[in-house]
Design a protein around this nucleic acid. Structure first.
Lengths: 223, 223
DNA sequence: ATAATAATTTAGGTAAGACTAAATTATTAT
DNA sequence: ATAATAATTTAGTCTTACCTAAATTATTAT
């Protein structure tokens, strides 16, 4: 089959900037480029355009990285709402598993109408979280605030409940599911190795040892 | 909001060529251009590319119009299957009405995966027709053959049942629905004016007079 | 402080897919 | 048959969003 020019949508730029700036710091050109799988030079060019659009979608200063303006954030939250509602809905109505939904939602999120968004939100009773436990921005585009901490910060004898898993890696998601680590699961930390930062945890009847690369992607609430 | 280059997808070219060639004759450059809302010169350019792609998607000779190759037809039927399954599914699961589904399906059809296609088809029990009564290409991409005739060919005292309405005009669709003219509806032709080709028909308790511009878009089976 | 390295931007290039205007070919009416 | 008109194609232009390579600026190590 013939291939056609595919270009990264503005929505995608904004969505990734949103995610990269959730630590409060501007997103670097390189980090954005890596996420979008294009070269840094191309990011510079597009970011300059987004900054000089009216209304401006991003704030940008040479060598300082980018942040979203009010407008840009609105647009980002709109796509994120689409994405997370779609994930929830693919799981609830079409039997997708949490490791299968990401790619499908990734493509659908850009083309659904506001009407479609309202319909699926209503059909599901306006869910607050997606299948990975991530909060769904509200219809008026406010992101609910999170009060969970990474599992990596937990130490032996602490117990908690899994709130969300921040990863689009299907292999990891399947692995965690097999271990019983899904949103809502209760656990207790049994051991911690200060040498390699591995955590030993008990979930239900299973005991698992997880490395930092994993525990830093699992967000939990103490209980 | 900033706008981005939007380019007509190959799938859209093929879909429209498919529709324009259903009378057996090649699609003209002008007709295609009008449908795609671009200039004829641009169509010529793209059609030449589609013809010299390997494998070729269309057959093309200067001034003679375009037809689809086997490959091109497969691709067209794939999108049409997507479109019609989506229409059926939007109506069945999200309460869309038949005049609302077209635009939404038009955008979704290009981005859904084969997996998604299979899931909605299965969820609906592999429907044979979309909400407008149009046949849905099968999973192996065969278009079921139609044996219906346009209502415009009917004359007084003939009775029949509406099979499909070929139109994406929401106003017309709403109008027809109000008259009871939807797939499955039974009717009887009461009168015909050879002067203006108006048909007077009885559907349920309603009697309506329809012009040729409408009766030529309604396909029926005698009964 | 300086040198080495890393990150970013600039400048210039390319390909795709639209456009316009001019040239050509086909069709229709007389 | 010829002229007028309509349809189509060609040629050349523009814009967008990517690219590479070179230049610049920032950061880090000594």
């Amino acid at each position: 089959m013939m291939k056609q020019t595919l270009t990264i949508s503005i929505q995608d730029y904004l969505k990734h900037i949103y995610e990269l700036t959730d630590d409060g710091k501007p997103a670097s050109t390189n980090a954005l480029a890596e996420r979008l799988k294009i070269k840094p030079a191309s990011v510079t060019g597009m970011v300059q355009k987004l900054a000089s659009a009216k209304p401006a979608l991003v704030e940008y200063q040479k060598h300082q990285g980018v942040t979203l303006t009010k407008e840009g954030e609105r647009a980002a939250l709109e796509v994120i709402r689409h994405h997370r509602l779609l994930e929830a809905w693919l799981v609830q109505t079409l039997g997708y598993s949490w490791d299968e939904v990401h790619d499908e939602a990734e493509r659908l999120e850009h083309v659904i109408s506001e009407d479609f968004e309202r319909r699926i939100a209503a059909a599901m009773g306006h869910p607050l979280r997606d299948p990975h436990g991530e909060p769904i921005p509200t219809a008026d585009l406010k992101m609910p605030l999170e009060d969970s901490t990474p599992l990596s910060a937990f130490r032996p004898n602490q117990t908690g409940v899994v709130q969300s898993v921040k990863s689009a890696d299907d292999d990891l998601l399947r692995y965690l599911e097999a271990l019983g680590i899904t949103p809502g699961a209760q656990f207790e930390v049994k051991d911690y190795s200060s040498y390699d930062h591995n955590l030993t945890m008990k979930i239900g009847k299973k005991t698992s040892v997880l490395g930092l690369n994993i525990t830093s992607k699992i967000f939990v609430e103490e209980s």
